[in-house]
Structure formats: structure tokens, C-alpha cells
Design a protein around this nucleic acid. Structure first.
Length: 487
RNA sequence: GGGGGUGUAGCUCAGUCGGUAGAGCAGCGGCCUUUUAAGCCGUGGGUCGAGGGUUCGAAUCCCUCCGCUCCCA
């Protein structure tokens, strides 16, 4: 590194060390594509000139001539540098470059004896010095901490990382297009909320000085989006960050990206159909196929997703409960004890059943599966089933053993909603830090009348994990949360 | 919070039974005009995560702490 600083100092003495005059007129990846079918003779007959800018990634120096690999945002191209073409001065300058330097080259394309498309450099410019060495050219960067902390280095050397974030952008674009095409309006609602609502989770707390008030980073946009439904925007969606002050794991980051959409005059069944369609087209748009491979497992997003109720799922994965009464709190409590899950006071049959589901079924759901009929007890914002008010018209979608989406027919009865908030407040007073607050303005909004509506929340990061075949959420977030670096 | 793994050169990693700290890549010097993980010769580079202990002697054994990581709660 010392040597690189000395080289930079020399560049500064000799003139412009960070020139800004070089303009490129081609990209490496474009050239590869354009010349894919041209052999050596074709390139000689019809010379293609190109000016490329990019990073010097590797070099093979053979005395009076050298090969180098240039990487830009589109891909890589091999460069041939001969003393004959460049002259003594520029060739000497090339030999003085370091891996990682940002350079500009111009020349004509040709094919080498080995058939590789290459650019015969006729001139060369150093555009920016790399003062720090790149990681090892073959093994790349392996230490996960460094990869996340210095994502810029990871992106330089890890092809898979670049690909992952391209898939991410493609999936989001596909979903946005899909919703816009169906007449949805994209909106932005508050990230800082006086009452954090829309989910059961522990919020981050902050303080607004001028107003001298406590504000919470949102855990979900749900209640604001439904206020917009009341307002007459009948199809809305938002793709943005949620914040939850909870543990960090391969599936959880304190801030994560959530898609939520709401559609008036629809119910949870149509919401399931739309969920399925959006995921399918995101896979097609990014991977070109509906049959994907996730962590050694084949998943088929093309077939209609399976649908079963919570109770059905629990029965089929727990033979001992096949004929049991799944609304008997005592029986469910015994099962939980067998599973080693401590039963907290206040848990009714619904909460107990969902705990059993999470413990025994969730990770088993590899192929896409909608689970429906969530107990009302654990669904404080969902509409009760008309025939069976103990359960709600709600679903969650599981793929590869992970929850990907959650949706329901919205509860639009203000009296019922007020009662549900009330029982959440009781749970909070009993010590449940994740329980909801009572949001009286939201009740007021419902009192103006909200049409029957279906809504869905879909975890974007988890969808990207699936599409990009990544085992950890930190692989799909550019700058995942880390402890501050030690001095 | 509990358990496992791990921390050695810029990067990727070896390091045996406790006995002078190693390789490859990257760097530096030299040779080399069709290489593509180029090759060959030479060469510099270390707070072995930190602190303590055992020992004639510790990267290695013991203790404490810290970081990272995976699994579980």
C-alpha cells in the first residue's frame, strides 16, 4: 500500500491524478454480446473501435506485451497491451499500474489465438488510483463480516453479490409494474408514527424535539394505508422499510423492506390469487423460470399454490392430534409442554394452536403453501369469518419453510376493531411488549366507513432470498445492520 | 440467554506431540509478444483477536474477555 501512495504522489507531481476528461463510448458486456458471433476474420474485416472505462482486475505480463482484464458495470473484457501499439511511455505506465486501478482504454476489438474477444489498446489513461489492494483474485472475499461492512469491496470482487442485487431490483420492478398495471396507486405513508400500529412487534422509539413528543419508527404501514382506502383511494400499495426492535438472525434485520397493498371490494381469496401472480411474475422477470432451486431444493412456483387451514396443517404434521379437538386449550397446552414451549398466561386456544403450528409445521412447508383460518385471537386487524367468528379470513404464505406474506379480508367494523384493540391493550398491560396500542384515530377513520377490503404484506427481502438462492437476509440487504467497527 | 465453530501477512488458508511463524495470491526486482488462476528466478511483509496463567520455552495447553459465525430459545 505504501508503494501505491508513492505512485499516486508521483502522478500528482506529473499532472492531473484524478482526471475527469475521459469519456467512454462502450461497455464490456455490450461488446461481448455484440461480437459473440464474430470470428477473428470478421473482426479484422470490420474493425470495431471502443473506448472503455473500468477497473483493472487481473494482469498477465509477458515482457513486451500483456493481457489484462477490465471490469465495468456490464461485465468484463480482456485487454491486449503491446509495447508496439502503445509505445514505450504508455506501456511503462501500464506496468506501473496496480490491480484495482480505474483506467480508460481505447482500441480495436480482435480475437486472440485462444478465441477470446479482446481490445487491442492504442491508448491508456489512469482515471483513479486504487490505494488499497483488492482481495485475492481467485478466492475473492470470504469473511462475511468484511463482505457486509465493506460491501463496496464485495461488489467489486463477488459476481454473485452483484447478481443478487440485480435480482432484487428486478423483483421489485416487476412487482411495482404488476400492481401499477392493475390500477394500483403507489403511495408513501409516515415512517415516523405517534402510535406504531399494523403489526405486533417491538418498535424503535425516538423523540421529536420541536414538538416534544415520542415518535416510533413504523413497524408496518398498514393502518395508514387503510385510512387511504377510507379516503377513496381504492387500490393502494407501498414498498418501503419497516423497523422492528428485535433480534437479528438469518431471517431478520432491524430494518427490512415490506410491500403492502390494499384493494377495496376484494376478499382474502382474491388477495391470495394476486400474491401468487406477483411472485410468479417476479420469478419470471428475474430468473426467466417458475421452477427455482433454493438451497438444494426444487421449488415450483408455476403450479397453483397449495391451500390448507391452520388446523388441517397441524393435524397432518402431528399424527397424535389427528382426531383431537384443536380448540381445547388444555389439550393444546399439554401438547405445547411436550414440545417444550412454555405456555404463558392469557394464551387461548388460538394462540396455543398457532404456537404448535409454528413449532411443528412451518419449516416443513417447502413448496408454496397458503395457510388459512388463523384464529381471531392472533389476528387483531383481520375480519372474522362470517360462519365461524373464532377464526379470521386470513392467510399466510410459506415457501421454503419461511413466512413470505400475510394477508386478510380487512376488519372494517369499528366497534369490533375497538374491542380488538382493547384486548391488545390488556395484553400490553400484562407485559406483552409486542402487543398493539389503541389507535383511536384509526377507529375514527373506520367510523366514516371503509369498504370491504383485502390487504397483503409481502416481505421483499425474503422473496429476494428465495429468488437469488441466498440463505441469509444479510445477503440480500446491501448494508445489513452490524455492530460498529472496533477502533 | 444456551450450545457449536472460528479469529495467524492486504486476501484465501496451512501450522503435527509445546521447541526459530509458513504457502498461494497480491506487492517489490528480474526474464518473457497470444496469456486468461499465465510461467520461471529472486525478495520484502506478522501485536498469531486482547489480557492473564502453566512452562526452560506457548499460535499451540488452561482461565477471562472481545469479535465474527451457525444452531437453539
Amino acid at each position: 500500500m505504501q508503494v501505491r501512495w508513492e505512485k499516486l504522489a508521483r502522478w500528482r507531481r506529473e499532472g492531473q491524478a484524478y482526471p475527469n476528461g475521459f469519456r467512454r463510448d462502450a461497455l464490456a458486456g455490450d461488446m461481448q454480446r455484440r461480437c459473440a458471433d464474430m470470428d477473428a476474420a470478421a473482426l479484422e474485416q470490420e474493425p470495431i473501435l471502443a473506448r472503455l472505462g473500468g477497473r483493472l482486475m487481473s494482469r498477465r505480463i509477458m515482457g513486451k506485451a500483456s493481457f489484462a482484464d477490465l471490469q465495468d458495470g456490464s461485465g468484463r473484457l480482456q485487454i491486449f497491451l503491446g509495447r508496439e501499439n502503445l509505445g514505450e511511455g504508455l506501456y511503462g505506465m501500464f506496468r506501473d499500474l496496480d490491480l484495482g486501478d480505474i483506467i480508460g482504454v481505447e482500441g480495436a476489438l480482435f480475437r486472440t489465438k485462444a478465441g477470446e474477444l479482446s481490445l487491442r489498446a492504442s491508448s491508456l489513461h489512469l482515471l483513479a488510483k486504487a490505494l488499497r489492494p483488492l482481495p485475492e483474485k481467485w478466492h475473492g472475499l470470504n469473511d462475511p463480516e468484511t463482505r457486509f461492512r465493506q460491501r463496496y469491496v464485495d461488489l467489486i470482487v463477488t459476481e454473485q453479490a452483484r447478481r443478487t442485487f440485480q435480482i432484487r431490483a428486478g423483483a421489485i420492478a416487476s412487482i411495482r409494474r404488476g400492481l401499477l398495471d392493475h390500477g394500483f396507486l403507489e403511495v408513501e405513508t409516515p415512517m415516523m408514527q405517534p402510535i406504531p400500529g399494523g403489526a405486533t412487534a417491538r418498535p424503535f422509539v425516538t423523540h421529536h424535539h420541536a414538538l416534544d413528543m415520542t415518535l416510533y419508527l413504523r413497524i408496518a404501514p398498514e393502518l395508514y394505508l387503510k385510512r387511504l382506502i377510507v379516503g377513496g383511494f381504492e387500490k393502494v400499495f407501498e414498498i418501503n422499510r419497516n423497523f422492528r426492535n428485535e433480534g437479528i438472525s438469518t431471517r431478520h434485520n432491524p430494518e427490512f423492506t415490506m410491500l403492502e397493498w390494499y384493494e377495496a371490494y376484494a376478499d382474502y381469496r382474491q388477495a391470495m390469487d394476486r400474491t401468487e401472480a406477483l411472485i410468479r411474475s417476479a420469478a419470471l422477470a428475474t430468473l426467466g423460470t417458475e421452477r427455482i432451486r433454493y438451497q438444494e431444493q426444487d421449488l415450483d412456483l408455476g403450479r397453483p399454490f397449495a391451500r390448507m387451514t391452520v388446523a388441517e396443517a397441524v393435524r397432518s404434521h402431528n399424527p397424535d392430534l389427528r382426531d383431537a379437538n384443536l380448540r381445547d386449550p388444555l389439550l393444546l397446552g399439554e401438547k405445547l409442554r411436550d414440545l417444550g414451549v412454555p405456555v404463558r398466561t392469557g394464551w387461548g386456544w388460538g394462540k396455543r394452536l398457532v404456537e404448535i403450528f409454528e413449532k411443528t409445521v412451518e419449516t416443513q412447508l417447502q413448496q408454496p403453501t397458503f395457510i388459512t383460518e388463523y384464529p381471531t385471537e392472533v389476528s387483531p386487524l383481520a375480519r372474522c369469518n362470517d360462519l365461524e367468528p373464532e377464526v379470521t379470513d386470513r392467510f399466510e404464505l410459506f415457501i421454503a419453510g419461511r413466512e413470505l406474506a400475510n394477508g386478510f379480508s380487512e376488519l372494517n367494523d369499528p366497534e369490533d376493531q375497538a374491542r380488538r384493540f382493547q384486548s391488545q391493550v390488556l395484553a400490553k398491560e400484562a407485559g406483552d411488549e409486542e402487543a398493539m396500542f389503541f389507535d383511536s384515530d384509526y377507529i375514527r377513520a373506520l367510523e366514516y366507513g371503509m369498504p370491504p377490503t383485502a390487504g397483503v404484506g409481502l416481505g421483499i427481502d425474503r422473496l429476494v432470498m428465495l429468488l437469488a438462492d441466498q440463505p441469509s437476509i444479510r445477503e440480500v440487504i446491501l448494508f445489513p445492520h452490524l455492530r460498529p467497527e472496533q477502533p
